[in-house]
Design a protein around this nucleic acid. Sequence first.
DNA 1: CTCTTGACGCCGG
DNA 2: TCCGGCGCCAAGA
Length: 105
Amino acid sequence: MSDNLGMDPDDYAEAVLDTVERIPPGKVMAYGDVAEMIGTGGPRQVGRVMSLFGGGVPWWRVLRADGSPPSGHEIRALEEYRVEGTPLRPDGRRVDMRRARWDGT
DNA sequence: CTCTTGACGCCGG
DNA sequence: TCCGGCGCCAAGA
């Protein structure tokens, strides 16, 4: 039960990518948020899917719970946030999760 | 089979 | 605020 994702890896990846595509511009979701919305897996599983197949979706809208952009893609992500008008913290290095987190509606 | 690796998260110090 | 440590769980060596 707890030793798998509850579905085939491909279906899980599809579920993750589908969720990410729904995040509106200027908004973001944490890896853990995506996992909860899908209902299975955890933040690390979502992160792995993004690292492998995230190239075709707005990957910068999925980041760490503390607002830090995806590891290894900080520069690119920050540029996107500037373009989309995503609210950033005073330091300008992290997203203001309190204002930018998308609830799913 | 065990051990290591990660686009993670949370809790101290 | 920054850092270290631990928990987490699938995938690869």
